[in-house]
Design a protein around this nucleic acid. Structure first.
Lengths: 107, 107
DNA sequence: TAATATACCTTGACAGATGAGGTATTATGG
DNA sequence: CCATAATACCTCATCTGTCAAGGTATATTA
């Protein structure tokens, strides 16, 4: 785990939305996906994840429902809304621009 | 001005050090350089800039001295230290890694 | 049956960014 | 000559996202 939270800060919501673009998912799963995708180099902390869920729900970017699996602990699934998809595109554009700018500034 | 502070957050120190790698400079000048370099798309707020200077001084990454220009308002110049140069390299590596990770996560 | 993994959640504290306020000097347009 | 803008510095209180630390509950495994 090497990436500082200040660098990743502000990307939490985009990262979550990105996962939900592919399929509905739940907190624990999203966290594991991130770990795997980054070869254990980055992990969203649980508190960060769940507060982000609240923000995203509040903003109308995701909706939640309880999974109905028969076994294992209960899961709260999240689904991305059309507004969420639009927001994701915005986040992505912001990232592309920020990347360009920071590259320029850290020459 | 489109880049949110949360995306740029954590890069302030690196951006300042990057400028000081080229030559000694002072707050007002660094701010104008950033504006110019980014075609007015990003501006470090003054309060952010000066608090960052304090942090960098505290960390031993920069040293300060008053300019001796005969005319105009007084200027406080900053100089990067060897430790600062090393820190800059670290920040830069962090950025390259973060960039890669975020790109992966925002697929 | 104890430990581990799965899965959720809340609270308080922290740190960086910033709006709003301030000071002082010099240049400039009317 | 005077008002305004530009240069140049600084501080403080507030806001926001992150996170450590704590909690709950169920299922699996050794």
């Amino acid at each position: 785990m090497s990436i500082t939270s200040d660098i990743i800060r502000g990307h939490t919501e985009a990262i979550i939305l990105s996962h939900l673009m592919e399929r509905d998912s739940y907190g624990y799963q999203i966290n594991k996906d991130i770990l795997e995708k980054t070869d254990n180099r980055y992990e969203l902390k649980e508190a960060t994840l769940y507060t982000a869920f609240r923000r995203l729900e509040q903003a109308g970017y995701i909706t939640a429902y309880w999974g109905n699996q028969k076994t294992g602990a209960r899961r709260r699934y999240y689904s991305i809304t059309p507004e969420g998809r639009a927001a994701y595109c915005g986040y992505k554009r912001d990232w592309e621009e920020a990347k360009e700018l920071i590259d320029k500034l850290l020459r």
